[in-house]
Design a protein around this nucleic acid. Structure first.
Lengths: 342, 342
DNA sequence: TCCATCTTGTATAACGTTGGAAACAGGGGC
DNA sequence: GCCCCTGTTTCCAACGTTATACAAGATGGA
């Protein structure tokens, strides 16, 4: 049988509100009363009913996180970081995955979890600006990830262009000149991967290296298989890159697999840099150099963004926050020195 | 401003309950009334407040899933499957990770999410039977994963001993005789990995191959680094295995990395079989043979177990369910034929 | 015409909690 | 001995929903 405040109150011989006060650590309670109530609570094994509390308070203590796909370790690791960040603010996390489908992303933003969540963190892939503009749900929404919308929502993402330039710069510093970009997708500026492609172009231009568009390979999806297919297609088409900058680590890993099947060596024949710093990249036969976004910072900022909006401590204007990133150099771009010692 | 039944009722000129009836598709409503109410609902953009509904009904429509660590792709993939299975029953999933810490696992089972979830799916690692026995929370609990407790809770897990035997059988069939087991942990029968170790022993015994205990390597954790360390220690101690059966794919991947650093080839020098069938295992320089548990079946059965308990359609006795598994053969155990063609 | 029956809609009371106001002690000052 | 003040506890209402019981209106048979 479920125990409510009423049961505890009856047993302790006090009013319901007094028990509530004890539970909520209200300060003006005599030690005697407090102890009497506490004993009743312990004896009955009372636990507050959060549903009722939340109905009364208008808050549920639950944040929703919607990512494209948990099977992608980047999102799994990010989700873990969000759980921890939320826990620091006494929030629990309701998780959903959209599978990168616009309809599902839309559903999420429109408040499919009507009134049961206090805030929503969404990493959109296919959602369009007009979908968000028509949103009526007043639950705070914060966007994460590469896609940018010119809309009044907080957005947390690393500087993708700068990060991409850093990766390409690193490859250029190794003396590579035919640097492929693996992961192009559509031609609209808002599409995912666009910023990283821009970074690739920008850094090549800054170094006076012509951007060979035949080295820009499109992908179907974001997984290893897509990387392998794209790399295979690129090589089979006769392109001869001496380096690859992949949209993410999964694509890079798939690409390396495609290279190894064709007898190409990494990094001797082709150097590779990925993006995301998945743990997986540290354990391949050739460990993967990568751009490491600060996932914990992303998670922390996203949660804080919502908490501040709920508090009312945030300024009304939308915030654009850029957590840090760093280049992690591993075997897939090891220079002559590192390789010699290996 | 939030819209409630009351607002809709006022606008439609009917009682609150009538609106409620419309929302819940109660059958005895004249089409005229229904349409009038529906128009008001649409005009005001009313959405039911699930918190209030759940307070009234005693159900929240939320299941909790607690796994050790989302950074482990097995649990991430499993979580994704649980999301899908829950969605089929109109449930949402609250996610938590315990980091394999007994205290956190205990907290979860004791109902830290007091009264906000309808059921709990837990994959314990360190939890002891007595922790569960003292559980007072009456929310249905279903256990998943290798650990077994002789307690009245439903348990979903593949037949770990049979699966391990299948893996070892496969290695024996390749002619390997010095088969290491990577992932031992403690000596208590209830510890994780124990069943898989038993399977290793049983299959060796059945084939008359002596079980060399120096080939049983303990691990500190369950990640790639632990596998690399354990394999390194095993090799440095002078053990000369010709095959490795790893507790999971991550350990196998770490072990393969340790081998490659020592110039050992897979599968020529050492064949490797993992456990979990992570996507990651399909894209290494050497793809990983593995035991593939039916993750979707595990997720489905776990969700169904809770749904049935809530329905009251389940028999009171605890159910022990065993989804299927299969051996997936890839390059890490490729026989002579496969290798010749590669 | 009147009552019995069926259909449709309404009023009221919960679910368990907390905020605010009101009530009640007990102690000190006059 | 009275009053006020302070600190503590209680009472009442409300959060938004649904179940129950009931009222009102419509229908039909005698």
């Amino acid at each position: 049988m479920r125990v409510s405040l009423k049961d505890v109150a009856e047993r302790a011989g006090v009013s319901i509100k007094t028990v509530s006060n004890v539970v909520n650590n209200y300060e003006h309670i005599t030690p005697a009363t407090r102890e009497k109530v506490q004993r009743a609570i312990d004896a009955l094994g009372y636990r507050p009913n959060l549903t009722a509390r939340h109905l009364r308070k208008g808050r549920t203590g639950i944040l929703a996180l919607a990512v494209p796909e948990l099977g992608n370790p980047y999102f799994a690791e990010l989700a873990g970081a969000v759980l921890d960040a939320a826990a620091e603010h006494d929030y629990t996390v309701l998780l959903d995955h959209t599978q990168g489908r616009r309809a599902r992303e839309l559903l999420v933003t429109q408040g499919f979890r009507a009134r049961v969540i206090d805030g929503l963190i969404l990493n959109p892939l296919e959602l369009e600006a007009e979908d968000l503009a028509s949103r009526t749900d007043e639950v705070p929404l914060v966007l994460i990830g590469e896609r940018r919308y010119d809309l009044p929502y907080d957005h947390i993402a690393i500087d993708n262009i700068a990060a991409a330039r850093t990766a390409v710069r690193h490859l250029l510093d190794l003396g590579r000149r035919r640097i492929a970009f693996l992961g192009a997708r559509g031609d609209r500026p808002s599409r995912p991967a666009h910023l990283r492609l821009l970074g690739w172009q920008a850094e090549l231009a800054a170094s006076g290296v012509p951007a060979d568009e035949t080295l820009v390979a499109p992908v179907e999806g974001w997984d290893r298989a897509d990387g392998a297919a794209a790399m295979g297609a690129l090589l089979d088409a006769g392109a001869r890159p001496d380096a690859v900058f992949a949209y993410n680590d999964l694509i890079a890993i798939g690409a390396m697999r495609a290279m190894s099947e064709r007898g190409l060596r990494v990094p001797e024949d082709i150097a590779v840099v990925g993006f995301d710093d998945l743990t997986e990249g540290r354990y391949g036969a050739v460990t993967l150099s990568t751009i490491a976004p600060d996932k914990r910072a992303i998670a922390r900022l996203a949660v804080e963004s919502i908490v501040k909006r709920l508090d009312g401590t945030a300024s009304p204007a939308p915030h654009q926050l850029q957590p840090g990133f760093e280049l992690v150099v591993r075997e897939s771009t090891a220079g002559p020195a590192e390789r010699a010692s290996a």
